[in-house]
Amino acid sequence: MNVNVNDYLAVASIIFCIGALGVLIRKNLITIFLSLELMFNAANLGFVAVSEYLNLMSGDIFVIFIMVVAAAEAAILLGIAIAFYREKGTINIDKANELKM
């Protein structure tokens, strides 16, 4: 039984769905961020698998740009986490309710 591109895409979609589930059910800002990273990585795995299957390089280059965006996002989100913690004394996102009617 040979491993083909669909198996890689299935694993990538499972990891992506786990990440989406983490974003939806958790309330801790750090855990939500880690779930976002899982989704980024699932997308990366899909890019690399399809790029290998089609014998092209575009997907591999895109993975590098996704890593850059993830690093930028990490810096911004951790700045937000520090500011939020200073304001509220917690990082539970239920406490971010200033816009609540």
Partner: peptide, 30 residues
Amino acid sequence: FYILLNMQFLAAMQILVYAGAIIVLIVLVI
């Protein structure tokens, strides 16, 4: 997986950038 897909450079970047930089940043914030 990246090594299995014949992209050794991306595997190294994955470990260096993600596991080495981003997660260390997160652990530092925690």
